[in-house]
């Protein structure tokens, strides 16, 4: 256990130091990240804001263990993530990270409950899958297949799937990107509730500035660098957001 955690003090879940990432796209080298340094605190709700190509997805993929940086370092609870091999990264994702994607990425051949169970089956101390669905208010749709659910419902199943293993961090990449405003609000409420009730460190990527109102901290990225970081005095609820 981390000493800070024992003391109940705000602890950095992630420490990101001088992170760079360069993609080779044919003959062109694309610099997606140009030396990003920041920290994510325990239980914090962070919104990463930026235009497309600003590097926010690359950052999220690296801290989620899906990608490796060109240089720099990511520490997760003091352990160096960037030094891990693919098997260790899989283990890390399996035990610690919940993902929510723009296009839900549910398994179409499994029902809502089964999609959640897919994760609880490989977790050490998961929730009851139905409780996870309850948390996103979809318990009554548990036996529906993804094709039988609306977009918002599918995204809430994805949230239930992500949190059912009680992850320490929840990483959301444009979770409302494919949804209309009304449905987007429902989904954001579900994410906020998980953050509030389970204390899960939550990072949400978006290019929709309105969502920033929900965050503890808003980090703006531009051209692979941090443009600004702002702290919200009061977090708004999703329904209070003005799109």
């Amino acid at each position: 256990m981390n000493p800070g955690e024992a003391a109940g003090l705000p602890t950095a879940v992630f420490q990101v130091n001088q992170l760079t990432k360069t993609y080779q796209m044919g003959d062109v080298a694309v610099q997606a990240l140009r030396g990003v340094t920041l920290e994510f605190m325990r239980g914090e709700f962070v919104v990463l804001l930026g235009a497309s190509g600003s590097g926010k997805s690359t950052l999220l993929n690296i801290i989620g263990g899906l990608d490796v940086p060109s240089s720099g370092q990511v520490l997760y609870l003091g352990n160096e993530l960037t030094a891990s091999d693919p098997v260790k990264l899989t283990r890390y994702r399996r035990d610690n990270v919940g993902f929510i994607f723009q296009f839900y990425n549910l398994i179409p051949s499994l029902t809502a409950k089964e999609n959640v169970e897919l994760i609880t089956e490989i977790s050490a101390s998961p929730m009851d899958p139905l409780d996870a669905l309850e948390l996103v208010q979809l318990r009554d749709r548990a036996n529906h297949f993804p094709a039988q659910l609306s977009g918002g419902e599918q995204q809430r199943v994805a949230i239930a799937r992500a949190i059912a293993k009680r992850p320490k961090v929840l990483l959301c990449d444009e979770p409302t990107g494919a949804l209309d405003v009304k449905t987007g609000i429902v989904v954001l409420e579900a994410i906020a509730r998980v953050n509030r009730e389970l204390g899960t460190t939550t990072a949400v990527i978006t290019h929709n500035a309105a969502i920033s109102g929900m965050a503890d901290r808003v980090i703006s990225l531009s051209d692979g660098q941090i443009a600004s970081i702002s702290q919200n005095e009061h977090r708004l609820s999703a329904s209070e957001l003005e799109w």
Binding site: L66, T90, R94, N105, I107, I119, I122
Partner: peptide
């Protein structure tokens, strides 16, 4: 492939 990649992302090993 999309389903399988998703499973890899959420923490399944290649063998699984």
């Amino acid at each position: 492939s999309r389903d399988l990649a998703t499973m890899r992302v959420v923490g399944f090993y290649t063998s699984e």
